[in-house]
Each structure stands twice: as structure tokens, then as C-alpha cells.
């Protein structure tokens, strides 16, 4: 089962809609709550990144028999130094974004913490693709 979401690059009010919708679906199906929590946190962070840094894009969230695979793709500026971006506390967010409570430099570290696998592919000037994998069972 795959769900496709378009993510606006300017719409902060609706940031989190994709994550909320996918969470509701997993809940309905009866996926264990600890797995849903991991998916929710990781997906929300990636969704917010797509809004803040990626200037919008899209997301495909797929439920497989043993795992959830979520792919975020944006056409934003790309990440210059992925290793640095992964460091907790490092952020390029503007003051305006920080005033909203984002930009703590915890997005990517949180994603890594709550997923079983995270792959980032990014090209400066072209965009970024992030693929998250969360296993349904230990």
C-alpha cells in the first residue's frame, strides 16, 4: 500500500498533514503503537525539512508486510555537507523558522534515531531525497 503526498514549501500551517494522515492509517490497520510512534516522529521531521529546507516536494509512504518505507523528494537547494547536517544542533534555519520552534538542529538526528535505516542523496542546486525505513517487528 502506497500513499502519495504533495508537500507545499510555504504552507507552515499544514506542515505535518502527511505524517498525521499516514499515522491515522497505520493506527486503523493496527500497527503496534511503538512502531507508529517511530514512524510519526521520523516522518514529521522529514516533512518539516521538506517544507523548511526543500521548498516543498512530495512524499511516498509505503506499508510493506514487514516494514514501512517513506521517501521524501524535494527540488530545493540540496545539502552541501551531509555529515555536518547530521550533527545534533547544527542548523541552517533562519531566525523566522527558529521563532516557530524549529531549527534546533535535531531534525536529521531524530530521524536517524527513530528509523532502522536512513539514506540521504543530495545534490547542491538540484534537491534532496531522503529514504526512511522502519521495521514493523524487532
Amino acid at each position: 500500500m502506497v500513499k502519495h503526498y504533495e508537500i507545499s514549501g510555504t504552507d507552515f500551517a499544514n506542515a505535518g498533514e502527511a505524517s498525521s494522515d499516514f499515522k491515522a492509517m497505520l493506527k486503523k490497520i493496527g500497527v503496534p503503537t511503538d512502531v507508529i510512534r517511530k514512524v510519526s516522529i521520523a516522518m514529521y521531521e522529514a516533512e518539516i525539512n521538506t517544507v523548511i529546507h526543500g521548498q516543498g516536494g512530495y512524499c511516498d509512504a509505503e506499508l510493506q508486510p514487514d516494514r514501512v518505507i517513506i521517501t521524501f523528494t524535494d527540488n530545493g537547494p540540496g545539502i552541501e555537507d551531509i555529515e555536518r547536517a547530521m550533527q545534533a544542533g547544527y542548523s541552517t534555519a533562519t531566525d523566522e523558522i527558529r521563532n516557530l520552534g524549529f531549527g534546533a538542529g535535531m531534525g536529521l538526528p531524530n530521524i536517524k534515531k527513530y528509523t532502522d535505516d536512513m539514506q540521504i542523496e543530495s545534490e547542491v542546486g538540484k534537491g534532496t531525497t531522503v529514504v526512511l525505513t522502519i521495521k514493523l517487528f524487532k
Binding site: A13, G16, I41, Y44, G101, F102
Partner: peptide, 22 residues
Amino acid sequence: PGDAWITIMSNINIAAVASLAD
């Protein structure tokens, strides 16, 4: 999950965070 979340953040994104973090 189940925490009472105390904050001074008042913008719309608190709804998503409260919901997703349960």
C-alpha cells in the same frame, strides 16, 4: 506518550507535535 506537555509555543505546529508524539 501520555506526557502533559508544557510550552510557551503558541503556533499551529504544536497541534501536529502533540498529535504525533501522543
